[in-house]
Simulated scan of single mutants.
Amino acid sequence: MDTHFLGIDDLAEVPSVAVVVDVMRAYTVAAWAFAQGAEKIVLAESLDAALALKARHPDWIALKDGASAPGFDAVNSPGLLRSVDLAGRTVVQKTTAGTVGALAVKDAQLVLCAGFVVAEATARALRARGSDSVTFVVTGEDGQADEDLACAQYIARRANEPVTDADEFLRRGAASRAAAELAEGVRQGVHPDDVALCLELDRFPFAMVAALERSLMVLRPHAM
């Protein structure tokens, strides 16, 4: 499998298969939303678009980065979301990098969204697909976020090798700038357990596939 690791702005063309990685915290949060019973997640292009969707569908749960804000029901924190009952609900998610990355490759034949919590399931999805080429979209810090790059590299290796030691990759995630900012309270809308939850390897047994449904980019879990 030929692998490419690119930032969002480095995407010169639409890949056939894309894995969009946001460990801290968009796709850890998405995985927790599905674990809490969410049916699907709509990835919004902007805060205004998220609020417009919420206005049209008052029963949907709108979620954003940072501090809570009028019109939004939740924030982008796995520690805060894990106690919310989302059974059968639709979540609208807008984050700084993760949702942007998925929308940047919305025309790809297959879009997987991932973090460490669904790493093995994502690797299995790639093996099942059998694609010759996979582009990993490293969403944080203009493609330089080490927690995202480490996770992407780990998934790529797991897709090609039956046995891979995750310790090095998890250590890089724990030592990343994003982990420090979450732990030190630099970012808003944070739970003390967020870093640990983002670094739980293979917490969930499903991959997350994003695809266009009418005009919306919709994320759904796929059991592997």
Rank of each mutant, 00 (worst) to 15 (best):
R171P: 13
A159C: 04
V14N: 14
V21F: 04
T135Q: 13
G37C: 09
G71I: 08
D107G: 09
L51W: 06
D167A: 15
M24G: 07
A179W: 02
A196V: 07
M1F: 03
V118I: 10
V17T: 09
D167G: 11
Y154Q: 03
A87L: 14
A179N: 06
Q188T: 15
A211G: 13
A50T: 10
G185I: 01
R158C: 12
Q153K: 12
R25M: 01
F169H: 13
H4R: 13
A128S: 15
L126H: 03
V23E: 00
G101I: 05
A87C: 14
G71T: 13
W60I: 13
V84Q: 13
V117A: 15
R214A: 14
V14M: 14
G71C: 08
V17W: 05
H191A: 10
L199W: 01
P78D: 08
L81P: 02
A31G: 14
F34T: 10
A207N: 07
V91T: 06
E39F: 12
C198E: 09
E141G: 06
Q144I: 09
V29Y: 07
S77E: 02
V218E: 12
G115C: 10
E45A: 12
A180S: 11
W60S: 14
M24P: 04
G143Y: 03
L110K: 00
S176V: 02
Y154P: 02
S46T: 08
F34A: 06
H191Y: 05
A62C: 07
R214C: 09
K94Y: 15
L199H: 14
S215N: 15
L126M: 04
P221C: 07
G7C: 05
V91G: 03
L43S: 10
I61S: 09
G115H: 06
Q93H: 13
S176P: 03
A183T: 15
A102F: 04
D9R: 15
A178M: 09
G143M: 05
T95W: 03
A44K: 07
A166Y: 12
L199F: 05
Y154N: 07
A145Q: 06
L43P: 04
F136G: 01
L11P: 12
A33N: 09
M224I: 15
V14A: 14
V23I: 04
D142H: 15
A211T: 07
F204P: 05
L126V: 05
V23S: 02
Y27I: 08
D65P: 00
A121C: 04
G7S: 03
S68K: 12
R89T: 11
H4S: 12
V75Q: 05
A156W: 02
A178W: 03
R171Y: 13
E13M: 11
V190W: 00
A49G: 08
L219G: 09
L216M: 12
P205Y: 01
V100D: 06
V20W: 04
D22V: 01
D2N: 13
M224G: 10
A108I: 08
L199G: 01
R25I: 06
L212E: 08
L81C: 08
V19K: 03
F72Q: 08
G101T: 02
A50P: 11
A62D: 14
A145D: 05
D85K: 08
R203T: 07
Q153C: 04
V117F: 07
L170A: 06
D194H: 01
Y154A: 09
V163S: 11
M217E: 10
